[in-house]
Design a protein around this nucleic acid. Structure first.
Lengths: 346, 346
DNA sequence: ATGAAAGCGCTAACAC
DNA sequence: GTGTTAGCGCTTTCAT
């Protein structure tokens, strides 16, 4: 192996420019204390030599960290994909590098990843996705995050509360109410919910909104089937199979996220049921493909990319004494997968 | 602000464990030269104190870098999402942090991002996605990558050649041949291709395979419409509109990636054409939603996640004198969007 | 405005 | 096996 000592250092460009290493540093990092003439020259020489400062040395020496961390359950989940896209966008725009980690929906792993990010001295950590209810690891995470913040690190979460940090919160409750009202207004009374584990705050909140809408219509969520499966496409399929088997009278299904709704649609197709003729289906999130499904999915739009942007922007601000909250907008998007219920067969 | 000096250092755990800083370092980094007893004790103390080594200091001091970079056009594109998922998976498994950057399909920006990654002294850079034909910036990228490799960095690319590095290459040509053969075997003769810019190697290769299949059937790609638009969903919609307007006799459309196929389906739906009854549609890639579209999309499956995994694994291996190539498998996935052509109307 | 020099926290020689 | 120490490449006082 040849290598390793070829890389340019600050001193190389300083020498070439005929100035001290200190001056060169100031010129390149844009700090004050150099004449414009020198600054200009140094930058020229550096560009010409193709010099790029070593981020590790820079950070170690006291410069602010130039990277941020993003924690998602799984980047392949379209909800997180779009959030990541937003985070990446503002990261690039601010000259920050973004490190993305999977938690794989595993609390233990979430803790490991948080620690890795802290070890990397990232400037900020963005945590996306519902929290878990594993009290023990959650406490550890909270504690580590606390320490991280005390030493100058910044944290923002998306879609979860209870971590004592700045947060971007989709209005899941209002959204849940909204989509449920829509389905009710169509005339449906035999409704089923296809949900992820209630222990996810996202699920709990959306369900709470649904309960409000039902109540206003004189119904009680207690009397309505809420099928819990994994908060994924496969979970949606399984849940829908259960609905079909156990509640054949259902005329409308509300899935608590689009991914599950896609699974629901698949299950229905497999059973030869027409949507929305035989049964209506609604989702939640409005992921990019929702409008391209067939039938195009009625859902609640959440500005996911924007949520990612907001979260990073929030984290980059001066810390405030009390955690800040940003509640995002949501809007009902009615497409082709919902319609009035079929006339009762009897 | 309180902060900043609270963070634990190696010396803190060394003192607490009653050993030298060197011993502590060895214990924690797992190098040889410490008795098991001491190693154990140090690790215990560190864990108990919640110490995590500063990655920047560690890397600067000569330890190998613990992060890798991944360059994608746009993480929201499902093709890249799945590749990223694979890269993240093996990254986590190897204890490596993954920095993801968007190029936004912009050559200038690609160069900027490559330089950022190099400045971060990542251990390896994975570049996913077709190359551009902007000769000038491509040359700069190649040159920077060259220098990076000479100083010990590793590089692997996915789906592009011509960069003189290790590469994971989907067999686009064979795939293009395969999907075209399928459509021909159904009896279609009035075919159109919906493609991204031919300047993308991916597009060129897939088209080359299609040409082979057509030729074997006694047709020439010269006589067949190849509509070029952006290699995206929107591009697919626009291209399909052009096909409908300019080539009304077409009975089958082959989109050169699934994202475009989704756009094609949308255009067809808007025009009230039934798939596959009136017209057949095929895609390429088999992204996760392909099977959930309606009709479920006939396409060529590429193991995207696995390609991401392979690329990182390749990059992490000992460098070889000559660039290595891994050609991936592909398989035709026939679903519901293709069928024999309708009987001629005339 | 400019330069000399003291670290940042760690690893890797190098002694013992 | 263990400890001492010289850097890694940079930013930042602190003199000048």
């Amino acid at each position: 192996m040849p290598q390793q000592r070829a890389r340019l250092r600050l001193i190389d460009v300083a020498e070439r420019a005929g100035v001290s290493i200190a001056a060169a540093s100031r010129a390149l990092s844009g700090s004050a204390g150099v004449s414009d003439a020198i600054a200009e020259r140094v930058r020229e020489v550096a560009a010409q030599m193709g010099y790029v400062a070593n981020v590790h040395a820079r950070t170690l020496a006291g410069g602010a960290s130039t990277s941020v961390g993003l924690l998602v359950h799984e980047i392949g989940d379209p909800y997180f994909t779009e959030i990541a896209s937003g985070v990446l966008r503002v990261g690039a725009q601010q000259g920050l590098t973004v490190q993305i980690c999977h938690t794989g929906r595993d609390p233990e792993n979430e803790l490991v990843q948080v620690r890795t990010l802290i070890a990397n001295r990232v400037r900020a950590i963005i945590i996306a996705g519902s929290g878990f209810v594993d009290a023990r690891t959650q406490a550890s995470v909270k504690q580590d995050l606390q320490a991280f913040q005390e030493t100058g690190g910044r944290v923002a979460v998306i879609g979860r509360h209870h971590l004592g940090t700045d947060a971007v919160l989709p209005d899941n409750t209002a959204g849940g109410r909204s989509i449920t009202e829509h389905v009710l207004s169509l005339g449906h009374r035999q409704i089923a919910f296809v949900a992820g584990p209630r222990t996810l705050t996202t699920v709990a909140d959306r369900l709470a909104g649904a309960a409000q809408a039902l109540e206003a219509a004189g119904l009680s969520i207690e009397d309505i089937p809420v099928i819990e499966e994994a908060f994924t496409r496969e979970g949606g399929t399984q849940a829908m199979q259960r609905v079909l088997d156990d509640h054949p009278d259902v005329t409308a299904v509300i899935a608590l996220n689009d991914d599950m709704a896609i699974g629901v649609l698949a299950a229905l197709r497999a059973r030869g049921m027409a949507v929305p003729k035989d049964i209506s289906v609604a989702g939640f999130d409005d992921v990019a493909v929702a409008e391209h499904l067939s039938p195009a999915l009625t859902t609640v739009r959440l500005p996911m990319a924007e949520m990612g942007e907001q979260a990073l922007l929030l984290a980059l601000k001066q810390p405030s004494a009390r955690p800040r909250r940003r509640t995002t907008t949501h809007s009902l998007v009615v497409r082709d997968s919902t319609a009035p219920p079929p006339r009762p067969k009897r």
